[in-house]
């Protein structure tokens, strides 16, 4: 029997590398276009959050509607440590990640006794509690007035004050985050996570401590969100509690589902689709409905979520990967048969 691991896991670096090079070349093309750069930077923040969430939701099958809280914890910790305490940026990021992991651990222990809708509601409630903290703990967060004057990010003696500089930083973080997550998925830990999604009772019967894994992946996803939040705070230099309220958590979830649960690139794809569609809507909707309020976004993404769940339960990333596969095999002049053996390529975990 062939025991090549690549028959199970797609560990090829070709696709990701091409993508990475394209992403790294983009800012040179759009160097003077801050709109494009800032759009891509936003995609970067969201991708980092949704990649962590994909591990939790897509692989372990555990829902969270409270991740905006961890995003906010990262943002406020970085803001407080750099602006108020005048400490270096990396300390803010690190302390943010530590606080997020401790909070997620403390919350996770009771919350993961719940399943399904109850888990969703509990995490939602947690998000509301943390939002209230951001709002009311005025001595640290500045309350609803917001937190002003967060200094630009400075790491390794480099200050990332322009969009052009920041772009590279955030995307390097995104790629590192995706690779870390991909490595996890393609290992013993990833299989344990997926087995929890598949059947908790069978998972325990083969010796998997499901509570431990649920908790570990919840903490990891909180750290992803926290780091993204820290970077975000340095980028926008002003934050307020509304940025981290319930709707943000729901948008994170929508991104994950649109992109595709069960694919490690799904978070990035979902984030990109969310940001691009959001920008497009801001352009188009006022032309059609002149007095539309900002609420149309909620309606639109709500409808999109329902449509995706009905027609593409595996998300858009799956469709995109099939498409890429078809194009690349056309290039190699291999006939693509609709009846070709289905399981060999397309179900490999990217």
């Amino acid at each position: 029997m062939d025991n090549n691991l690549t028959k199970i896991y797609n560990r090829s670096l070709k696709g990701p590398l091409i993508f990475f090079v394209v992403i790294m070349l983009l800012p040179f093309i759009f160097q003077s276009n801050n709109y494009i750069l800032s759009t891509f930077i936003m995609i970067g923040f969201y991708s980092l959050v949704t990649t962590g969430l994909t591990l939790l939701i897509g692989y372990a099958g555990q829902i969270s509607l409270g991740h905006a809280a961890f995003y906010g914890i990262g943002a406020y910790t970085s803001a407080y440590f750099t602006a108020t305490l005048q400490m270096p940026s990396w300390i803010g990021i690190l302390v943010g990640a530590i606080i997020a992991s401790l909070v997620s651990l403390i919350i996770g222990i009771p919350v993961f006794k719940l399943k399904g809708h109850y888990l969703a509601l509990a995490t939602l409630g947690f998000g509301v509690i943390i939002f209230t903290f951001f709002k009311e703990w005025k001595t640290i967060t500045g309350g609803l007035n917001g937190f002003f004057g967060i200094p630009p990010l400075s790491l390794f003696g480099i200050s990332f004050s322009t969009d052009f500089q920041f772009y590279f930083l955030i995307w390097i973080f995104v790629f590192l985050g995706i690779f870390f997550a991909r490595n996890i998925v393609q290992s013993r830990v990833g299989r344990a996570l997926m087995s929890i999604h598949g059947s908790e009772i069978a998972s325990e019967a083969i010796g998997i401590n499901i509570n431990k894994y649920k908790l570990q992946i919840f903490v990891l996803s909180a750290v992803y969100a926290s780091i993204a939040g820290s970077l975000y705070a340095h980028y926008v230099t002003f934050i307020n509690p509304q940025l981290f309220e319930m709707m943000t958590s729901i948008y994170f979830l929508i991104m994950v589902v649109i992109g595709g649960i069960g694919n490690i690139w799904g978070g990035l794809i979902g984030a990109a689709i969310y940001v691009f569609l959001g920008e497009l809507l801001k352009d188009i909707v006022p032309k059609i409905i002149p007095n539309a309020s900002g609420e149309f976004e909620i309606v639109f993404f709500g409808v999109l979520l329902v449509v995706i769940l009905i027609y593409m339960p595996n998300g858009i990333s799956k469709a995109i990967f099939h498409f890429i596969k078809r194009i690349t095999s056309n290039f190699k002049n291999k006939p693509v048969s609709a009846f070709s053996k289905k399981s060999t390529g397309s179900d490999i975990h990217d």
Binding site: I8, A192, M194, S195, H197, G198, S199, A202
Partner: peptide
């Protein structure tokens, strides 16, 4: 209680 979200060999590897 087979893990339907995996391939056969991944089930066994789990």
């Amino acid at each position: 209680q087979v893990f339907n979200n995996m391939t056969v060999i991944e089930n066994v590897m789990t």
